[in-house]
């Protein structure tokens, strides 16, 4: 595929300002602590895997990074700017892929993409949608309602949706869950290609060996704390599993 997916001006240059910088981030709901003193430094253009057992706080951390949930304490800076409640400008540089497809089932793939594109104020939303539908290999099905799609196809539309506004930071929350092997491979390739184009990728995943293969940096959460933050190449899956499941 030869479609260019990044306008160079908008893309962060690797080594420039950190894409994500979290200092002593905490999240408590009522009196229960979900995240505690999270320090995180992700430089622009990195591919980071976020690992941890169920309930370790991966999804909450990702939601905080996506500005969906406000932290109870600490400072979060995205692209060097402090995140506040009305961080409209920061939001326009984020893309999120979640468990759910975040699509409207009764609308076609194209309608979904055009809608989200316009919501972000993308100049030529229909053109951009066509471009991305080609990228995720769904151009022939563009006008079918999303509800007729398989889970894998939906996830591909979901990726296209997250890319409509050409975000600099892509957050993915367990995107592989429920996908069959070919769809999985396709998604892996897409994420790697986007990373190759200079995007920062944060991938929350429970598949340890897959994550270590894909990402450059691995962050392990356990009971709401960061217990490991190292380059992925230096890590051994068994050691990471031990960290994930230690008590």
């Amino acid at each position: 595929m030869t479609v260019s997916l990044s306008t160079p001006a908008a893309t962060a240059i690797p080594g420039a300002a950190a894409a994500v910088r979290a200092e002593k981030l905490t999240k408590a709901i009522d009196d229960k602590t979900i995240l505690k003193d999270i320090n995180l430094d992700i430089s622009a253009g990195r591919y980071v895997a976020l690992l941890g057992a169920n309930g370790a706080g991966k999804t909450t951390l990702l939601k905080i990074l996506a500005t969906l949930v406000a932290p109870s304490g600490g400072v979060l800076k995205l692209f060097g700017q402090t995140v506040r409640r009305d961080s409209i400008h920061i939001r326009s540089r984020l893309g999120l892929i979640g468990h759910g497809a975040m699509l409207y089932r009764d609308l076609s793939a194209r309608e979904n993409l055009v809608f989200f594109g316009r919501l972000y104020g993308v100049a030529d939303a229909p053109g951009r949608a066509a471009e991305l539908l080609k990228f995720v290999d769904l151009a022939p099905r563009a006008n079918d309602p999303v509800k007729t799609f398989s889970r894998g196809m939906m996830q591909r539309v979901s990726i296209a949706r997250a890319l409509m506004h050409n975000p600099d930071l892509l957050l993915a929350d367990e995107p592989f869950s429920g996908l069959d092997a070919p769809s999985c491979r396709m998604l892996e390739e897409m994420l790697s290609r986007l990373h190759g184009q200079g995007k920062t990728v944060v991938l929350a995943n429970h598949e340890i060996s897959q994550s270590l293969r894909l990402a450059e940096q691995a962050v392990v959460l356990r009971k709401g704390r960061v217990v490991l933050d190292e380059p992925a190449s230096s890590l051994d899956p068994a050691a990471v599993l031990a960290e994930v499941s230690a008590r």
């Binding site: 057992a53 599993l241 031990a242 994930v244 499941s245 230690a246 008590r247």
Partner: peptide, 9 residues
């Protein structure tokens, strides 16, 4: 619930 996980490691 956390115990079996520890058992795997």
């Amino acid at each position: 619930a956390t115990e079996p996980l520890g058992g795997i490691a």
